[in-house]
Computed example of a mutant assay.
Amino acid sequence: MSSPVSVFTPEESRAIKQSWKALTADGLLPVGLLLFERFFADVPQVRHMFSGTGIHGDENSPKENFSMETLRENDKFTKHAEGVAAKLSCLVDNLDNTPAVMNICSELGQAHKMYNVKPEYFDRLGGVLLDVLQAAMDVGLDHPTIQAWKKAYEVIAGATKPYL
C-alpha cells in the first residue's frame, strides 16, 4: 500500500504542524476569535454575512458594526469561530494527504456557497491567517514557516474557491 500524496516537503509539513500546535495551545476558540477579529477589521464588508448568528442591530448600531465583545458573547458566533479553527486543525492534521485535503476543501466550499461567500474573501482570510501566525511567531514574511503556511493556504484556497 502506497503512502498518501503530499505537496509539502517534510520540513514544510513539520513547520506548519508545529506552529499550529503552538498557536492553538490555549484552545481553538481563542484562535478562531482572533482570526475573525482581524478578518472583520481588514474586511468589514463581510460582517453582514453573519446575520445568522441572531445578532440584530438597530438604527444606532447596525449589525455590521457590532463589536467583537458582542460577538464573543454570541453562542452561534463563537461556535462558528471555533469551528473555523477546528477545520484548519483538520486540514493541518491531513496536510500530508493531499486527496484528503482536497475533499475537505470541496466540502468547505460547498458549505460556504449557500452564504454567497466570494472567492476573494477566502484570499483575504489567508492574509489574516498569515498575519496572525507571523505576529504570534514574531517573524518576518520571509520566514520558512510563514512561507510554508502561505503555500498551504494557496492549496486550501485553490481547492475551495471552485466550489463557492
Rank of each mutant, 00 (worst) to 15 (best):
S3Q: 04
R14E: 09
I156H: 02
T53I: 04
L130G: 04
V117K: 02
K63I: 08
D93E: 13
E120Q: 10
I146E: 01
H56N: 07
K118I: 04
V31S: 05
S2Q: 12
H143R: 11
D26I: 04
I16H: 06
G140F: 02
H143G: 03
S3D: 04
A86N: 00
P99W: 09
L164C: 15
L129D: 00
S3A: 03
A159L: 11
K118A: 03
K87G: 10
T70H: 14
V117P: 02
R47Y: 00
N94E: 09
A136S: 15
M114N: 09
P44N: 00
A136M: 07
E37R: 13
E154D: 03
S3C: 06
E69Q: 14
I146S: 10
R38G: 03
E37G: 14
S3E: 11
V31P: 02
Y121F: 15
E12S: 09
F50K: 01
E107D: 12
E69L: 07
S3P: 08
D123F: 08
W149G: 13
A22M: 01
P119G: 01
Q147V: 13
D26E: 15
G57P: 13
D75P: 06
V31K: 08
L23A: 12
N97V: 05
G32S: 03
E120C: 02
K87M: 14
L129M: 12
I146L: 13
I16F: 05
D123Q: 08
G27K: 09
G83S: 11
T70L: 15
N116T: 10
E11I: 06
V43K: 00
A25I: 11
F8M: 03
K113S: 09
K79R: 15
T24N: 11
S51L: 06
L71N: 01
F122C: 04
L108E: 07
K113Y: 00
L29R: 14
E37C: 07
K76A: 08
R72P: 04
P44Y: 06
V132F: 04
P144I: 05
P30C: 08
D75E: 14
E37N: 13
P62A: 07
V31D: 10
F66M: 08
V117Y: 11
P44F: 10
L95F: 10
T70Q: 14
Q134L: 15
C105G: 10
G57A: 12
L28Q: 10
I16S: 02
A159W: 02
K79A: 10
R72K: 15
Q134I: 04
K151M: 00
A15Q: 03
S51Q: 14
G109C: 05
G140L: 14
G109V: 07
E73D: 15
V132I: 13
K21D: 08
M137F: 12
M114Y: 04
D131H: 11
L23G: 06
H48Y: 08
Q134Y: 07
Q110F: 05
P99C: 04
L28R: 08
D75F: 10
Y153N: 09
L108Y: 02
V132L: 11
R124H: 01
A81E: 05
S51I: 08
